[in-house]
Design a protein around this nucleic acid. Sequence first.
DNA 1: ATTTGTGCAAATCGTTTGCATCTGA
DNA 2: TCAGATGCAAACGATTTGCACAAAT
Lengths: 139, 139
Amino acid sequence: MVNSSAISQPDRHIDRLREHNLRPTRQRVALAELLFNGPCRHVSAEQLRLETEAKGIRMSLATIYNTLNQFTRVGLLHEISLDNNVTYFDTNTDHHHHFFDSKTNDLIDIPKESIALKALPEAPEGRQVERVDVVIRLR
Amino acid sequence: MVNSSAISQPDRHIDRLREHNLRPTRQRVALAELLFNGPCRHVSAEQLRLETEAKGIRMSLATIYNTLNQFTRVGLLHEISLDNNVTYFDTNTDHHHHFFDSKTNDLIDIPKESIALKALPEAPEGRQVERVDVVIRLR
DNA sequence: ATTTGTGCAAATCGTTTGCATCTGA
DNA sequence: TCAGATGCAAACGATTTGCACAAAT
């Protein structure tokens, strides 16, 4: 037995999906494994389509989009959109910032503690700050 | 004479276009007037299409896109893209930040002096920082 | 006269939706 | 059994492109 945990990875994902009232279908569990096993990731729908295809997991692109949106809705993912009009989904749902490599289109997480924002201007009348996103663009 | 300047507004734009090796066509001058007369703006191509239509300026949407991209390429505009996959063009080309009102999709400029960024993490090996964008999301 | 820009329609790209079929509880 | 998911194809919205025509130097 390689994994010392009593709960196998697929079962962990199944439980997590259930907690969010999402039926643990074959497709959802497969995406959860791609997304949440291993380190945090920034992926587009198209990237996931290529991965599922490469692994022989049959799943339509529409289902990938639907699933990513559902995961985002329940808080398992965060959406990010940059210059290119492609939506990236971030498996790190903590508040944090990003390097964006304009050559490779790579996103790299920056823990929010690594950036100190001083002297934030106050929000306009009647509005509240939802969050502050910092993107450090690299070339 | 309302304007005390010796150079009329259209002529200013014409000169500016020439400086950037852009022929001052009717369409480009019209867009330059919409964009650069008055205060700084954040506009989408579609917004400009509505404005030109309202003012009876005949111009195809394709030309609006082409022109905005040309203006951006020569540095007269800056591109911004947010959650919604619409590209906004910012007539303020100085380095600055933004409030983004998620209810109205409005962008509001924040002068860069209004936000102090401390303790920026260093760029990854071999990369340099192009710029730092701060978006304060409001709800 | 020659180069460059424009308009239009069609193409493209990312994403969403409608609907018949299938699947998990 | 049956609500809820999926797959497919078609729809969609934003943006780009190809090409014949028009305008600028």
